[in-house]
Design a protein around this nucleic acid. Sequence first.
DNA 1: CGGCGTATACTCGTCTACGAGTACTCGCTC
DNA 2: GAGCGAGTACTCGTAGACGAGTATACGCCG
Lengths: 223, 223
Amino acid sequence: MAKRRKVGNLLALSLLSLLAQQPMYPYEMAQTLRARGKDKNFKINWGSLYTVVNNLEKYGLIEEVGTVREGRQPERTTYQITAQGLAELKDWLSELLSVPEDENSAFVTALSEGGILSPDQVISLLTIRLATLDKDNADHQADLKLWTQRLPRILLLETEYQLAMRLAQATWVRGVLRELVEGTIDGIESWRQIHETGEMPPEFKELDEMSKRGWPEEPDDVK
Amino acid sequence: MAKRRKVGNLLALSLLSLLAQQPMYPYEMAQTLRARGKDKNFKINWGSLYTVVNNLEKYGLIEEVGTVREGRQPERTTYQITAQGLAELKDWLSELLSVPEDENSAFVTALSEGGILSPDQVISLLTIRLATLDKDNADHQADLKLWTQRLPRILLLETEYQLAMRLAQATWVRGVLRELVEGTIDGIESWRQIHETGEMPPEFKELDEMSKRGWPEEPDDVK
DNA sequence: CGGCGTATACTCGTCTACGAGTACTCGCTC
DNA sequence: GAGCGAGTACTCGTAGACGAGTATACGCCG
């Protein structure tokens, strides 16, 4: 997050967006999100919901518009978005759309620590991943086709994006996997050796040393 | 996260991985991560570091191996990984490599709420994003080339993956952008209308209604 | 040899995320 | 008409994330 938001949780963005359309009470927000299938992406956390609503109010982005007691159900507090809230929403959306984030997914971390496992293990794990990806993507694609028939595409961009990313991931994994299996990837023999002998081959030790001292003419990672 | 880990922070994974190679004290772990350029991905949070180390110890994944006082610097507590910790590390890595996560990036959320902004705004925001992506990717690619000359590729997989994902994102954004600009995307006129007249066209209202009641023969999103 | 900037190594308190639990109501069945 | 399960609407306690702050030592410049 480039700029520091008063309420940083992404749930807040969804809530602001809902309230930009009509006033609601918290439980209703959760229902609406669920109805729109957003719960596929994030589990609804009741704790977070009420915390976020409170914070939004605290910072003046939404305001209480009255409490209703319908039937004999518990009292419900209805909120509406404020002018400030609308401004914040637009500003936030603008930032998120225009500034690519540095995503640090768990998979990336795992890849960089993958050397702990043996090459054969990694090959088999990635094979499982790839199978899951392919299966999910096929389902996802079929699903998207169905939706395309009843909704204008403009509303499905988010789904299309997710699918595109998943497909790209599958393609990448497939490529690496082939190289690993064929053993054409540079460094794999040393890696295999480490796991067979328990010994670190000299060229790796050297790398390790160097990483501590800093390389000669270090190529200073950009960004 | 499919399984619930005793220590869920990804930082814990990196720390376990470090300690699998040699005992260290916390500050040293941070230095090592930084030296390896991992700080490009995540800012080192001192608070988290010590919290995570404590938790790892609490759950028996690492253990104190002695406190040293070198020179007259403050006392340092050195930790080493336990058998349990090594097992956990391997299990965790296995999971992360084999199970694709449902990533819910900020961009996805923003895309799905993008209708709040006007089409022209979104076009200009995405144009900025694309420019940044292209620039970053070019830098990243040049950088990777340099590294490839001094490190075996097997150690660069993580970087290659990140680049591949960024390139895929750029490609997708470029495609959508073209469609938006050309106006060939289904639903864009209605969207434009909303922002010009402030009125919701009837077909959108209808969709809104339907989303609340549930569609006829709902295509039950998979997963 | 005094002073100041930088590195080391951590501590503490706050703010946030979250999930289990609560309490009440409605509709339905037996 | 009592009992039960599903839905409604939220509360509260705890665990975790995080950053600002602290304290000490070392180098080195004049």
